[in-house]
């Protein structure tokens, strides 16, 4: 369980997060949604100890992220941030293989290679595994980065807008893979999404943030309503039902 208690964050006089308390139990996919600047990325960054905690406490399976060593946490929780600029000339396989670093420290075992192969297959990268990253398209590189995070084989996987740069096919493939991972490998996935229909279709739970606070939290069916979405995003979003699945239509006025 990821337990977030009274977490606040401020840069200068700007309050990014205001006394957030929320728990994410083990298993399933939790989607973080909300307008730009709501503090979603900051919250993920704090949970993965990329930002120092200013106030409050965050623990992952009762390990406090501020006092537990980085080596231990790297086997517990993996994160993919947005804006990953990778300038290194590595092959896809090499990059994904670095996801094994917390376990193998660079000496890849048979088991490591098995997990690397599996990650490459899972994210449709097997064919391009020997290609250098700088020869890939933005979407292919994005998939390689997700595969690297997955390859870290942690119980908790935090993904900050992993659908960036992906076309519809790969976006939906990625979400299906994540759904599959969550169901069959008992992984806990927390994912920041901007397309709420992906959140509504694939997540078990949606947490909505706005102005540094949690404004809605519940099952997709509870959040994917005109009232709830209107409150979160501040404009009217019609929701229709397609085959029992609520679909938001933010482009229809």
């Amino acid at each position: 369980m990821i337990r977030i208690e009274n977490v606040s964050l401020a840069f200068g006089k700007t309050n990014i997060l205001k006394e957030i308390s929320v728990s994410i139990p083990k298993g399933g996919i939790t989607a973080l949604i909300g307008p730009n600047g709501a503090g979603k990325s900051s919250l993920l960054g704090l949970a993965a100890r990329l930002l120092p905690l200013q106030a409050g406490d965050i623990s992952v399976d009762n390990l406090s992220v501020s006092s537990t060593s980085g080596k231990v946490l790297a086997k517990k929780i993996a994160i993919l941030r947005q804006d990953n600029h990778v300038g290194s000339r590595l092959t896809v396989r090499e990059l994904v293989g670095f996801g094994r670093f917390p376990h193998s420290h660079g000496h890849l075992t048979e088991n490591d290679h098995r997990i690397i192969d599996e990650s490459l297959r899972l994210f449709g990268l097997t064919e391009m595994s020997e290609r250098l990253l700088d020869t890939l398209s933005g979407g292919q590189r994005q998939r390689a980065l997700v595969a690297m995070a997955y390859c870290q084989d942690t119980d908790y996987l935090l993904l900050d807008e992993p659908l960036n740069n992906l076309d519809m096919y790969f976006a939906s493939e990625l979400m299906k893979s994540l759904r599959n991972i969550a169901d069959t490998r008992a992984k806990t996935i927390v994912i920041v999404l901007h397309d709420i229909n992906y959140a509504g279709s694939f997540a078990d739970r949606i947490i909505a943030m706005k102005d540094g606070q949690v404004v809605a939290d519940g099952k997709p069916a509870d959040i994917m309503t005109e009232t709830a979405l209107g409150g979160i995003y501040g404009f009217n979003i019609p929701v229709i039902s397609v085959g029992g699945q609520p679909i938001a239509l933010p482009f229809r006025r």
Binding site: G45, A48, R49, L50, S69, G70, K71, V72, L73, A74, K75, A78, I79, R81, N84, H85, V86, G87, S88, L90, F98, G99, F101, P102, H105, G106, A149, Q152
Partner: peptide
Amino acid sequence: VADRLTIMALGRDASIGLGID
């Protein structure tokens, strides 16, 4: 420490995420 240096070149976030001091 060659592997760690390669990871350092991926950036601070990636380094910390992979448990590097």
